[in-house]
């Protein structure tokens, strides 16, 4: 299995631990990644400004991977939805595709044919690599942990872009991926609600109130951590956790760890190898439960 990795904008600056751990586990699973330095922004922020400009930017990224004959592996839910939606629109609207292609040819000498596939890395593990296959790589089951999986809206919605590889309202894939590691995925209030990231730049307080609901739910359920598969959801739950605590006069100290970090621990990597030192809310208690202490 070989993919062009699409890192996006948030990960290199605010989610290095995600990238470090994802590359580590994927390589260990025999999944090869190719970096394409000419990938730009996925197009997500442009969508609100100009649908056409957004599709053009996305189509260029799609065409680059397509020219190399590689499917795209994403780590961020927003990148995933932007590329999957653009692909869906281009593949179903010949007029749009032709117009975008003539712009791509003029500007960059590129064409988008529609052969390239785009998938989130967690979906690739679930759907293509397979849970049974993944089980063979588990060396150190994490039976001590109870965690709250957070999918993020754009992992399964809209169904037009993703088909129905998982239920768009009550998904199970991440719970199953967590279960493979030996950790217990626990139910929590507002499990399938939005992190609030989409309105952070417009009304901070509203975004924090949304993230608070999620943190409340995970805390109440007694989770050792929230498991995230999107860097911006992590920014909301982890990067902004202190601000939320201050705003609402509450205390969480709830670690937020990436699924790739959880899986990596179960595959026998050490916390250092998985970028745990970069987690903002220090998962000391969680790691101590697993016998890692400094």
């Amino acid at each position: 299995m070989k993919y062009a990795i699409f890192i996006g904008c948030t990960i290199p600056v605010r989610g290095l631990n995600y990238e470090i751990s994802a590359r580590k586990v994927l390589s260990s699973l025999g999944i090869e990644l190719v970096d394409i330095p000419e990938f730009t922004c996925c197009g997500f922020p442009l969508k609100s400004i100009s649908h056409e400009a957004s599709i053009l930017m996305t189509a260029r990224n799609l065409a680059l991977a397509e020219a190399k004959g590689l499917p795209i592996l994403t780590l961020c839910n927003a990148c995933t939805v932007t590329m999957a939606e653009a692909k869906h629109e281009l593949d179903h609207n010949p007029e749009l595709k032709e117009r975008i292609n003539s712009k791509l040819e003029n500007l960059f000498g590129l064409r988008y044919e529609g052969k390239v596939q785009v998938k989130h890395f967690a979906r690739i593990l679930y759907e293509d690599f397979g849970l049974d296959n993944l089980k063979n790589f588990i060396k150190r089951p994490l039976h001590e942990l109870r965690v709250a999986p957070h999918y993020g809206c754009h992992f399964v919605r809209p169904k037009e872009a993703y088909g129905e590889f998982d239920d768009p309202e009550d998904p199970k894939s991440l719970d199953e991926l967590v279960r493979v590691t030996g950790a217990e995925p626990i139910p929590h209030r507002h499990k399938h609600y939005c992190c609030g990231g989409g309105v952070l730049g417009v009304r901070e307080q509203t975004a924090y109130s949304m993230a608070k609901k999620k943190l409340d739910g995970a805390k109440e359920a007694g989770a050792d951590a929230i498991i995230s598969i999107c860097p911006f959801c992590s920014v909301m739950f982890e990067g902004n956790q202190k601000k939320i605590e201050k705003t609402f006069n509450v205390k969480y100290k709830l670690p937020v760890i990436y699924y790739s970090q959880l899986l990596g621990l179960a595959m026998g990597f050490t916390p250092d190898e998985l970028g745990f030192s970069l987690n903002r809310v220090k998962p000391k208690a969680l790691l101590a439960k697993l016998g890692f202490s400094k």
């Binding site: 809206c153 809209p158 169904k159 609600y193 309105v199 417009v202």
Partner: peptide, 12 residues
């Protein structure tokens, strides 16, 4: 500008 883009309404 306050839509968070979660697609729940669209789904339903």
């Amino acid at each position: 500008w306050l839509c968070s883009g979660c697609y729940l309404c669209q789904q339903r």
